[in-house]
């Protein structure tokens, strides 16, 4: 029962969503299904918050490796919630709002929550994102080792694309003179880069995307027909 009902709901709603794509009057039903998902996901978020607290509290109490980070996580979690819920630093935006306590929006510019986002969260995320450059370099170093013919081809293609992306006209024109005096020089490498990107990369990506589309159809059918229910815990 605990598995049959969810599968039936998934099947019926899934088929309605497919039909709605071709039948305009069913589009509001699709919207309702999306609203339901939002409601369920919001409830689940509370579950996630509770799980986060329990998980880190357990780590702290067991003195597991990295328990100090758990303390920082929990402190940040509770401080952010408190600042957001109590609307620290938020002021009413209109005269009507003056009558009501805590009537200003919590994300208001200058509020505590805004400050945390702007000056703590945002820089940390930017820092993490910036690290990506080093990871790309490290992965590229390993991938472009010329150990066989395929790797050499990959390396050459990568070099062409890399050089073609630069804005230096002398490099990308291979130091060739312009065809007519006063005109812009040729861009053999830049053109080659564009050719590689538009022809080989696009063709490869489209081939993968066709496969993905067919895979999505087959997986969706497996789910809608209840053939594969391992995502719900199988038959148990």
């Amino acid at each position: 029962m605990s598995k049959t009902v969810p599968i039936l709901i998934a099947s019926i709603v899934g088929f309605i969503m497919i039909v709605a794509n071709f039948s305009p009057p069913l589009l509001p039903v699709r919207q309702i299904a999306e609203d339901w998902f939002t409601i369920v996901a919001t409830i689940a978020m509370m579950l996630g918050g509770a799980n986060l607290c329990l998980h880190h509290l357990k780590k702290i109490s067991d003195r597991e490796a990295g328990w100090g980070f758990s303390t920082v996580t929990l402190l940040s979690f509770f401080i952010t919630i408190a600042v957001g819920l109590l609307k620290v630093g938020a002021v009413p935006e209109s005269e009507q709002q003056l009558k009501f306590a805590w009537s200003g929006p919590f994300q208001q510019e200058g509020s505590g929550f805004w400050w945390i986002y702007q000056y703590l969260f945002s820089p940390i995320v930017s820092t993490m994102f910036a690290l990506l450059a080093f990871y790309v370099a490290s992965a590229a170093f390993r991938a472009f080792r010329a150990k066989n013919v395929e790797a050499i081809l990959l390396l050459l293609t990568a070099l062409i694309v890399l050089v073609g992306q630069t804005r230096d006209r002398e490099i990308t024109s291979l130091f060739l003179p312009p065809p007519v005096e006063g005109a812009l020089p040729y861009f053999p490498i830049a053109d080659l880069t564009e050719f590689i990107r538009k022809t080989f990369v696009t063709a490869g990506q489209r081939a993968i995307m066709i496969g993905i589309a067919l895979g999505v159809v087959a997986t969706s059918l497996r789910i809608l027909l209840g053939l594969d229910r391992s995502y719900l815990g199988g038959d148990e």
């Binding site: 993968i208 993905i212 895979g215 087959a218 997986t219 497996r222 594969d228």
Partner: peptide, 9 residues
């Protein structure tokens, strides 16, 4: 791509 979707089956 599609191999991910084929994996479970």
């Amino acid at each position: 791509g599609e191999e991910l979707f084929a994996a479970s089956a």
